[in-house]
Write a protein that binds this DNA or RNA. Structure first.
Lengths: 166, 166
DNA sequence: CGCTACTTTCAGAAACTTGTGAAGTTAAGA
DNA sequence: TCTTAACTTCACAAGTTTCTGAAAGTAGCG
């Protein structure tokens, strides 16, 4: 037996339907297809983690495709890679309670937008109409930065009340 | 003279540099290239609006490309189309102080994610580990929905203090 | 130290996306 | 009503992305 049935006893139809449906939404929102499918598969797994081989099998793709997708996802801090002790297999894990925090940690994205905008204000002139519009947009992003941090704090409290410490 | 210089007296180099740079960030964040460029061009214009011809000229693209980009942007509520009175030209306008609110109005996106997740909870079983993970993720999105509305309220207050009524 | 079980890299085929020119449609003004 | 400026649609060529098989790299374990 090559792979133990870590995810047995579940309707593979239902799993696949969810995986493809949720992945499609992620793609719609701008994520590449393969990372989206891999991520959805991890999210739908009971253990929250799958090996490269298991991913290749459920998604019917090559190890190469899994490798590329996983690299992308770990760069985005959406999955962690962990080595299975006593094996040369790698497991990829979705940080159950933190993955969606990565969505709000678009920190890097916001920072780059802010940078581009502030260059725009400078180069077009802070006293021009366009410059003023950009300055206001910039102020909005800065405001959002701060608000998101506070919001995540409130979420953690809210979550603990409702779900307890994961 | 074919187009009047509505945006004259500005360094076209600087404008173009901002437009391409900001558009690149939008592309990075998942937006299609041409809508991103059109949008950046509008954002960088003094009047906050440009005609189809002006857009084609600054971006060096065909009317067809402008048409497609603008359709996309107006579907996303990021620009408004307005007919110039006494002319058959159309102007495309960025809602100066509201365009970025469209970014947070990812309402439709969030709703679709919530829908996909709640289907997942049902089909995989609310009492399974995977089902529980999805239910928590779903709760997070619902929480975010509400928080964003409140945040935008605070922003409007904050903005008025700082910039006055647009 | 080498074997083997994995993972990663890479070149290329296939599929998809994008922007264009040209034809078609709409509506302002004579 | 006709003319014509302006926008939109469409088929296609060019460009890009994506996934694969094959080859190369890496690390447990004897």
């Amino acid at each position: 037996m090559t792979t133990e049935p870590a995810e047995a006893g579940r309707d593979p139809e239902a799993v696949s339907k969810f995986v493809e449906g949720f992945a499609a939404q992620l793609v719609e929102a701008g994520m590449q297809r393969m990372p989206a499918r891999v991520f959805a598969a991890l999210l739908a797994s009971d253990s929250g983690s799958l090996t490269s081989a298991e991913l290749g099998e459920t998604l019917r793709v090559s190890p190469a495709a899994v490798s590329g997708a996983v690299r992308y996802l770990s760069q985005q801090h959406m999955v962690a890679r962990e080595r299975e002790p006593g094996s040369r297999r790698e497991r990829y894990r979705v940080h159950s309670n933190q993955w969606y925090e990565a969505l709000t940690n678009r920190e890097a994205v916001l920072k780059r937008w802010e940078h581009a905008l502030s260059e725009g204000v400078t180069s077009l002139g802070a006293d021009t109409p366009a410059g003023r519009r950009m300055a206001e947009t910039l102020a909005f992003f800065e405001f959002v930065d701060g608000e998101i941090a506070a919001m995540m704090e409130r979420w953690r409290v809210h979550r603990e009340e409702r779900f307890g410490r994961g």
